[in-house]
């Protein structure tokens, strides 16, 4: 091997060695980033995304952290996650208790978004699902103590649909009603106005990201009465009403009285009304 060949060989070795070093170093950075991103992509429960935000995983891929939604919010209630915050750095969020979404009809935050991280297909703010309000604490919510409050019901922008009042008997007083707030997912946008308005020191009604707040029924479940409604009639052979072959004047009470023999009044020529007897003799004389 000549000198120049040796030199080339060394250069090639050096080159390959250096390349391997760089590739491995960058690969390690990538692995670290991948692990860190898993931790960083979980959204804390009290951080809500702006209206129209894609599901969290897609959102983190689509949002380029430009902050244009924050700038175009007329109520200045959107913020970008700062380094050290519990939300992915640079992504927009709001906190319902301190600054809920005021549900602008023209949804300027979506219009400002350059990437569809806030879905431009959402044109009706009432269709947005930023989260779901939940009456989380029935022990402190004063409605459950029989006190009239209904503030959450009254501030709700989808009034009478997202939050309804369920009237229940007040067992404590025995004569009053409880006006219990009940949230309905099919109408609640998760704007958070109820949470901000809650009069307690710590809100008893809170908005959570939908996946945290919402249960899901097993796919195999069928609710009989709903299936019946859908089918327009019973899906199984209807039950035959049970009949007791009892003698006349006897019946069976299913509510616990058991066998009842209906007594027929004894027949008598005398009326049960004493006046009739008196009047009858008077009629005779006439």
């Amino acid at each position: 091997m000549s000198d120049t060949d040796k030199k080339h060989e060394m250069n090639r070795r050096q080159f390959l060695g250096n390349m391997l070093k760089t590739a491995c170093g960058v690969g390690l950075v990538g692995m670290g980033l991948g692990i860190y991103s898993n931790r960083a992509s979980s959204l804390p429960a009290h951080y809500l995304r702006p209206p129209g935000a894609l599901p969290e995983e897609d959102f983190l891929g689509a949002c380029i952290r430009c902050g244009l939604c924050v700038r175009d919010c007329p109520y200045d209630m959107l913020f970008l996650g700062e380094v050290g915050d519990d939300v992915a750095t640079g992504t927009p969020y709001f906190v319902a208790r301190t600054g809920p979404c005021e549900m602008c009809e023209d949804i300027p935050c979506i219009a400002a978004c350059p990437t569809n991280a806030l879905d431009h297909g959402l044109t009706d703010i009432e269709e947005s699902r930023m989260g779901l309000a939940v009456v989380v604490d029935q022990e402190t919510c004063i409605a459950f103590h029989g006190l009239r409050c209904e503030v959450c019901f009254n501030v709700c922008p989808i009034r009478g649909k997202a939050i309804t009042l369920d009237l229940q008997h007040n067992v404590r007083s025995g004569k009053h009603a409880l006006f219990i707030p009940v949230v309905h997912f099919d109408a609640c946008t998760g704007c958070g106005l109820c949470e901000r308005a809650c009069i307690l020191e710590e809100a008893a009604i809170k908005v959570f990201p939908t996946d945290l707040a919402k249960g899901e029924l097993g796919k195999h479940y069928r609710l009989g009465w709903k299936e019946k409604e859908k089918a327009g009639g019973a899906l199984v052979t209807p039950d035959v009403e049970h009949k007791y072959n009892l003698p006349e004047g006897v019946r069976y009470d299913l509510q616990g009285e058991g066998l009842i023999i209906e007594e027929k009044p004894e027949e008598t020529p005398f009326s049960s009304n004493p006046l009739d007897s008196l009047n009858s003799s008077f009629m005779d004389k006439k």
């Binding site: 860190y36 992509s41 380029i64």
Partner: peptide, 20 residues
């Protein structure tokens, strides 16, 4: 640069480079 472009493809969780 290649890493920043590969990560969004292979790891769920979006634009990962923007985290740091």
């Amino acid at each position: 640069l290649a890493l920043t472009l590969i990560l969004p493809l292979v790891v769920s969780g979006g634009i990962i480079w923007e985290l740091i």
